[in-house]
Write a protein that binds this DNA or RNA. Structure first.
Lengths: 227, 227
DNA sequence: ACCTGAACACCGTTCAAGT
DNA sequence: ACCTGAACACCGTTCAAGT
């Protein structure tokens, strides 16, 4: 009954913004940033490229909406807990896992400054920072530190995933190849990278991410005590 | 005498990779990521687009080389000091200032995982982490935390600069407009962002960046003591 | 009001032809 | 060995014509 009005045209239902965003997410998940083209999108939606512009303003707008849908999911899954540190860690790991599952989100966040998806992240982080007891004058700097770290790691992960895809290799192969290159570096010019090459192959991205969050949280908590 | 062999053709000197990279940096500085096209580059170098491919493999290769030149400059300017914390802060600020002066570098670093420019950053950070006295098993996580933070902030700054350029606005105008949007948010759904809107307009990016570095350094130093 | 799809103005890259 | 520049295979976006 509710959908009676819809099936008037050749297509199953009228084109909607949500439908376009969903198709865009699917294309991005399958083919990365290069996988989303208006040609592929129009084909998938059984329409012409021009029709899409009746619902979105530009490709940038579309990618922002796609990234926003992913981030909104993480936001909805936030932990209701008495421990602010746990809540912050939980949200940060939620973002990490979401970007791990949808690597293009990491790159997308880098191209939409101040827009809804980033606003959601800052909001979640900011609420936890407040719950942590950070005084008003330290809120901004504390929230930005965590925010920048989350987005920064996301961007790196996106870059790694894109590189692996472009070379048609998996993560292990890319890391093994990179570790070999690093280990072959001149130990005088690159003492750290040369010696750390083997750790590159065996490290756990998620654990490293959490370790960084913890460093920042420790720093923030210590700064509260110092005031 | 040394250049006798060169001026045999119509152009002043033969095309070289360094010359191409220098021209690319200039175009990127003037017009951002969109300013670097093979058409503009060929015009600037008084040649055809095809000639450039005799010296570089692709546009990705060229942007990586351009970013590497900027990062190499920061690396060369590293502080020789007894205080490892100062050295780390100094290098991090050097990267911040370089990306502030050449915003496209922030975006470029996000597209060249494991490549020379990022390797230089990790190496500089890693050396300072070692000098800080971090035990071997904590080196990787500590260095990655600082590295990810530096690159993450760089990416955000690049995005902000690109947005301002695209809208033909300056930083203050963009921030004022964004602050207004944030302040108009629903205080129930976005209590943090809504209340922090005014700080967005008056904040100091460089000071915030340094505050974040300090949080991480405090966390790392505390973790050394805990072992 | 929305869809259609050809056309437009680009883009990075290739390559046969030159020197 | 390197340069030249037309040609190629794309791309996002526009718009007159339809319904």
């Amino acid at each position: 009954m509710a959908e009676k009005k819809r099936k008037v045209r050749g297509r199953e239902a009228a084109l909607s913004r949500d439908q376009i965003v969903a198709a865009a997410i699917d294309l991005l998940d399958r083919g990365g940033e290069a996988g989303l083209t208006f040609k592929a999108l129009a084909e998938r939606l059984a329409t012409g490229p021009g029709a899409i512009y009746n619902h979105i303003a530009s490709k940038t707008d579309l990618v922002a909406a796609a990234a926003d849908a992913i981030v909104a999911d993480v936001q909805r899954g936030r932990l209701e807990t008495a421990d602010a540190e746990d809540a912050l860690r939980n949200f940060a790991l939620g973002m990490f896992d979401a970007i791990d599952a949808h690597p293009w989100v990491g790159g997308a966040l880098m191209r939409v400054p101040g827009q809804p998806p980033l606003l959601r992240i800052l909001e979640a982080v900011g609420q936890d920072i407040r719950a942590l007891g950070v005084p008003a004058e330290g809120e901004w700097a504390s929230a930005m530190a965590v925010f920048n770290y989350i987005v920064g790691v996301g961007g790196q992960n996106a870059a790694n995933a894109q590189l692996a895809r472009a070379q048609a290799l998996d993560r292990t192969e890319v890391l093994t190849s990179l570790a070999h290159t690093w280990s072959s570096l001149d130990p005088v010019e690159y003492p750290f990278a040369q010696s750390i090459g083997t750790q590159l192959r065996t490290h756990d991205d998620r654990a490293d991410f959490l370790a960084g969050i913890n460093f920042i949280v420790i720093g923030i908590v210590a700064s509260i005590r110092a005031t």
